[in-house]
Design a protein around this nucleic acid. Sequence first.
RNA 1: GCGCCCGUAGCUCAAUUGGAUAGAGCAUCAGCCUUCUAAGCUGAGGGUUAGUGGUUCGAGUCCACUCGGGCGUACCA
Length: 542
Amino acid sequence: MKNYLLTVFKKAETDIPALKEITLVFEKPKLAGYGDLATNAAMLLSKKLKDNPRAIAQQILDSLKVDPKVIYKTEIAGPGFINFFFTKEYVTYIIKKIIDKKDSFGKSEKYAGKRANVEFVSANPTGPLTVGHGRNAVVGDTVANLLEWVGYEVDREYYFNNAGRQMRVLGDSVRLRYLEIIGEQISFPEDYYQGEYIKEIAMQLYIKYGDSLKNDDPEGIFKDTAEKEIFSDIKKSLENLGIIHKIFFNENSLYKDGKINELLDYFKSNGLSYEKDGAIWLKLSALSKNEDKVIIKSTGEPTYRLPDIAYHAVKINRGYDLLIDVFGSDHNATYPDVLAGIKAIGLNPDKVKVMIQQFVTIMDGDEVVKMSTRKANYITLDELTSEVGKDAVRYFFNMRNINSHMVFDLSIAKKKSDENPVFYVQYAHARINSILNRVKEVQLEISTNNLELLVHDDEQHLIKTLFQFEEEVELSADSLETHRICTYLYELAAAYHRFNKTCRILGTETKLAEARLALSYAAMIVIKNGLSILGVSAPEEM
RNA sequence: GCGCCCGUAGCUCAAUUGGAUAGAGCAUCAGCCUUCUAAGCUGAGGGUUAGUGGUUCGAGUCCACUCGGGCGUACCA
């Protein structure tokens, strides 16, 4: 529909040259009475042409040559909107297109040949993934899917650090639990890792080595074993959600490869760093930031900023056209420093898009399920997945705008009814599949020969909802908003369920029944495609 | 104090990124199965979009301030 209007407007430019100067927008009006698509072009032109919008709208309409077989009515409405009404015969062509393209309907080549990198999760291996990481993981993976749908070649990446203070504390936590097991008196510091998993790792070591590790260094076998075990658990948790990273990037490699020293030299020789109080400071004040920040502590250890800048430089230099970082909101104060650092070394920070993810509250009905990494009573991502299943986890985390706090209600996610949006959408798919199986018995075939018979309001509404899918995918990808896909699928499922109620297939005259079958089949394809973007299964039976 | 995010129906959230009369689900109330899954559908009530001012043809959306919540504000990551 949109493409048709674009072509028609293009031709009108000879009459009204000013049309070239504005970006044409066609959108679906909220109210059905305002037609299928509307444009505000006349309002945008009113300033340039110094005439009132409704008069300009009339001029535009006079210059447009629309085919009455495609558009049966146009009108000028409100302050100067032009509304277009498409014929019922015309809109049904989308059904043919969907059935023709099947799994690839909704995919576009908009960014074909471009490469993107999505960095997400990136939790250090100090403990099991939390539900917060889960939201990050699901949205990151789904954004990667979306980018693939619009043509990008996407690398999924996980950045981690297995050195530094956190990991030392981890090793020592295991060592203390180990000593406890072999009967030594210990005092376990409060800021050490309290979780049961530490004791389990210590127990494994005891089973394998007895008490022979009594005098071992915390950073030796204790840390190494903990890292290995925890990382393997993390990867398993992600796999349970269908998430597989292509690249695991170890911060340490930046030191080994000399990237850190290169960066330090660059800052120094360009007057962007200086020494004060035994530390090295990055002159962010020279980069339109408020204050300078330390990049090397007086102990000689770098702060997170230095490797982060080096890491982003490495990624940009791999030649990506787009880099996405999915961060927790605890990073919200730090990434601007990193972007400033990237700019300082002459790379383009505009390629980097940062998604800040807000917190998740887990509820079970009216009850808040507490989360705390330190305390014992917290729910891990694995527990969540096994409680409600992969599909619900992925759908629920994708369902809400990433930069809003969200409530994840376990009791709803577990329900097998229309209260649970995952089931509502999946059920629409299963229902269509069941119809397709059923009609075989009465020898009805899917046919696109008589689509013009689909004139019922509920048929037309369903068709127009199908029409929106391609645009919705593109919009979601461009805005990095996965929740739009959920909202869309819910609407599509609702449109289908309603159609299913009012427009029966069995017992209907053959031509109409077969056209309705084609429409049902098209809806099934689009639901499946949408769910696959989300990484949610499309069951054939429920 | 300062920075970022958020505030929309009783609850959980949308709103085509500045468009026309702010929409769904849950909950409440009233209905619909001799026919393809009632795991579904239909209808009703429910709003000063936290508040005040501003920008313009037009604001839930942009700007300023105020109030409320979250996360930061380290020579932790």
